[in-house]
Each structure stands twice: as C-alpha cells, then as structure tokens.
C-alpha cells in the first residue's frame, strides 16, 4: 500500500474530509470511497468523458485527476447539480429530446454541457459540438444530445 493523506474539500457544497491513498484517482474516491456513483467509469483514460466533474469551476476527467489534488478545492459532481437551475433544465431537455438511451454517458454530458453553457449561455450548435468533443456516446448518435443542449436555455 502507498502512503495515505488526509484531505478536505467542498463537495457539492458540503465540507468533506477523507483519507485517501496518494495514488488514487478522484473517480475512485467518488465512487468507491464516497459512494457517489453518478460519476461513471467508462474508459479510465480520458477518452470518454463519462467521469467528468467540475473542479474550481472547470470540467476535468476525474479518472485522470489525483484524488489528493482535490484538497482545498471546490468540487461538484452530477449529484451536486440536482438542485441547480441550469442542471435541471439540462436534464429536462435531455429527456424531452430523447437524448438519453442507455444513460451511461448522460451524467458526463450534463456536467460538460453545464460548463459549456455557463461559459457561453447562448452557445450555437457548433460551439456545443466543440464543447462536448471529449464525451462519447455509444447509443444516440449525438444529434439529439446537441439539440438537447442547444435547447436547454429555453426549456422549463
């Protein structure tokens, strides 16, 4: 076993402390140590975006982030968007546009599109497509996802 370190950070608005092995990823910490399983393990190597979380206001792949690097930072997972107005609109829009099939990619897409629309509230389809280029979906063919995100400003 490697050394462990005590870290403390804000997780979905709540002060959280935990002891983690220094080589653990933030994804493993969320799912296995903290029980937040909304963040998905797809590829484990930065290719699919299913593990997307927000750290200090920017999205990152939690499978590439060292858990210890969350110390002192503001971390939001898909669970943290439950009561968030834009998060709610995005979820409603995904459902309305049929952008969810198996749903495995959905938390990552919602996190990333939340970030895209926060940075650029009136993003056009091209900006949306560029914004989610790090998210893979094996089911929908992306068209409905891009439509859902583009419409999220107006939904609800």
């Amino acid at each position: 076993m490697s050394a462990t370190v005590d870290i403390a950070f804000t997780l979905n608005g709540v002060e959280t402390s935990i002891r983690v092995p220094v080589t653990m990823s933030a994804l493993e910490m969320m799912r296995d140590a903290l029980g937040l399983t909304g963040t998905k393990y797809g590829c484990g190597e930065g290719e699919c975006g299913a593990c997307t979380i927000l750290v200090d206001g920017a999205t990152v792949n939690s499978c590439l982030l060292f858990a210890v690097d969350c110390d002192g930072r503001d971390v939001v997972t898909i669970e943290g968007l439950a009561a968030n107005p834009l998060g709610e609109r995005l979820r409603a829009s995904f459902v309305e546009h049929g952008a969810v099939q198996c749903g495995f990619c959905t938390p990552g897409f919602v996190m990333q599109s939340h970030h895209v629309l926060t940075k650029s509230p009136h993003a056009d389809a091209e900006e949306v497509r560029r914004g989610v280029e790090g998210n893979l979906c094996r089911c929908t063919g992306y068209k409905k996802i891009v439509e859902a995100i583009s419409a999220a400003e107006r939904v609800g």
Partner: peptide, 9 residues
C-alpha cells in the same frame, strides 16, 4: 488539443 476536459487540466 484533446478535449475541453483535458485542456482544463
């Protein structure tokens, strides 16, 4: 470069 998530990190 890569994707938004990777560029941010």
């Amino acid at each position: 470069f890569a994707s938004d998530q990777i560029r941010n990190a």
